[in-house]
Design a protein around this nucleic acid. Structure first.
Lengths: 163, 163
DNA sequence: AGTGAATAGTTCGACCATCGAAATAGTAGG
DNA sequence: CCTACTATTTCGATGGTCGAACTATTCACT
């Protein structure tokens, strides 16, 4: 695939347009990667996202509830129930009624799902580490600054979209 | 939102883990941005992706065909027909049978869709330009190198998944 | 205590995006 | 021209998602 904007010539100026293009390519590729990974494990995009959110929450100590998951995934309550049904039926997690508020359900993962998560991230993480191995400390700082400002910009423009 | 890994302190070491985290946050945010944008225009994710692919092809001079669009979107032929039906019914594009091979259909965009595309990218692009304004030339090169190697890494790991 | 309002989650019926298979139309080779 | 092939569409079925109605639980107020 040719972009018409290449020539990775190190002496060429790096325009904003080029950065936008690269950013878009990266999101497209990582999107496609997630899609293929899910496909090979019988998981839909939504299920993968749900697992990621639940795993992140678990890592921080407080277990997810269906309603928080719903708003994190921009999904209706009923759709969230369906997602959790699928994941529970597949043995990736189980529901646990909260002991303090028995309306609430706490979502806990099975080790199996944790293993899938590791299987997902490890190869990519290792390959990333390899790709970034020869970056100097100042370069890494520049990249981190770039990523942070881009995230903030995206969040801000999205915020303007909401009523 | 707190990640547990921050302190944007410029003297802190930028680990691979931090870069992975930032990368994931960025893809999540841009994903969400696209979702909200599409929602506000009555377009599904697939429709937005299709418009982007068709617009890119048009910019390079050769109009998309349904089958090439299908493989670009990882979609079946029939699903692609449905997408195009939606987009045509909404007035974003029209079908044009090729004059040289009358089996083929060429997809052309209406100005309306081009305007939507501009409306999509301009605010984000401007905000990005603003966010990156104070980056030096060497920093930009580092970032471009980082993005390119990350894209390549993603493509490669995905490739291993395929067989 | 006890009634009413609010919150958490699930079930139900409908919709629509996607799929695979078959149908239609056109092209190319022998 | 007849067969094989390509490009696209149509059709029936599957399944993810939604909104509305329902159950269970908690909170506020008297």
């Amino acid at each position: 695939m040719t972009t018409g904007t290449e020539d990775a010539d190190d002496t060429e100026a790096v325009t904003d347009d080029l950065l936008v293009l690269l950013l878009r390519q990266l999101t497209v590729e990582s999107d496609r990667f997630a899609e293929m990974f899910g496909e090979s494990h019988g998981l839909h995009r939504t299920d993968l996202n749900a697992l990621a959110v639940i795993m992140d929450a678990a890592r921080m100590g407080d277990p997810m509830s269906p309603s928080r998951l719903a708003s994190a995934l921009h999904l209706s309550a009923s759709a969230t129930t369906a997602v959790l049904d699928r994941l529970e039926r597949a043995g990736h997690l189980y529901r646990d009624r909260s002991s303090t508020d028995r309306r609430k359900v706490e979502l806990r993962m099975h080790d199996q799902a944790r293993r899938i998560g590791a299987e997902f991230f490890q190869p990519l993480g290792q390959r990333y580490a390899e790709a970034w191995r020869d970056m100097g400390e100042d370069e890494r700082r520049a990249v981190a600054r770039f990523l942070r400002s881009s995230i903030a910009a995206t969040v801000e423009v999205r915020g303007r979209l909401a009523p």
